[in-house]
Design a protein around this nucleic acid. Sequence first.
DNA 1: ATGTGCATGTAACTGGTTACATGATTCG
DNA 2: CGAATCATGTAACCAGTTACATGCACAT
Lengths: 187, 187
Amino acid sequence: MTGSSVSLRHFILGLLTRQPMSGYDIKRVLESLGWLVGNPSFGSLYPALHALLEDGLVSVTTDTRPDKPSRKIYSITMAGRRELDEWVNQPTESNASMKAFVMRLIVADNFSHAGLVAQLHQRRAQVAAHRAALERAAGSRNHEVVWGRQLALDYGKALATTELAWLDNALERLFQQPLPTEALQGD
Amino acid sequence: MTGSSVSLRHFILGLLTRQPMSGYDIKRVLESLGWLVGNPSFGSLYPALHALLEDGLVSVTTDTRPDKPSRKIYSITMAGRRELDEWVNQPTESNASMKAFVMRLIVADNFSHAGLVAQLHQRRAQVAAHRAALERAAGSRNHEVVWGRQLALDYGKALATTELAWLDNALERLFQQPLPTEALQGD
DNA sequence: ATGTGCATGTAACTGGTTACATGATTCG
DNA sequence: CGAATCATGTAACCAGTTACATGCACAT
């Protein structure tokens, strides 16, 4: 209930650790990531920003420029950083989607080396469990229902296998050359 | 608005082309697929079934057995088959999720060879476009924002590449040995 | 003037979740 | 008798979407 869900909220917070941005800016970043994190419409983006402001996790200044329409620049506050830190260092729920993982990945990478490694490990465990479940499902025909020639199961297994390989590789790379970024160096 | 969205509804319909089932049965099938299609709670499953009944796309009979609690067995109607046929043979929207694709894959596989091939081709085009977008994003550093060492982009590209390879392979297999199932052979 | 891009916002709706409530049947 | 499994359902809530509305600035 309290906590780990709510993706967009924390992802915005994560982006703001890099630098202050407007809602429009955030939208552009999201768009550039294709369907990796999905791209929320303004109809959810702006209200999310308002809610963050309400909760004191971000602050806003109006940027009035001579030549362009003015815009609101949001910055993360100390309270926001604390909230984000808590979120990143709290375990992912076991049914997390790929999008949720990518969000956490990006945020953690902006944030702390340890957190990033933890995300990758958690994801690894979950993907492994998922693939095992698919293998079980493919093996047992006792379900009386045969949905589609195991095509879907095969698809799922192929993707899971690649993902596991990628995760292993990423973890290896991370241990070889530790990241330059370290936690909470902002503002 | 009218049409292509609404996944669960059509996926249920798709399962029912195989054989009549209860809500509980459907849940079990969904569960066995892990997070490949997500598994909706009863709180959305039962209402979905009620709505399908309301619309005349399924019919229901109560199965009163001596030893077990009675249950409601749903069967797809001719109207339901028409609806499903329309859905399968209508183009996927360009932002479709993996889950949406898997649902369509399974339904199409139960349903028509041509439809299945079409699904795979559409997915191929979409994944290719997605990967191209990620490559573009990784290439241009003009975004002033650098979120996390391209780690996420790299992840996305790896998965997309595997998926493309799988799709090509699946299409090849499908052309070599046409499927035994053909459209609308039920009831 | 009019259309396009930048920029922000709200209201109605939707597809889903959680939590709750009910009841039959079987097993220990 | 109580717990576990099978089986169905509802109500409150939530995160997101679509569609709508506003307005500035610049170029044609």
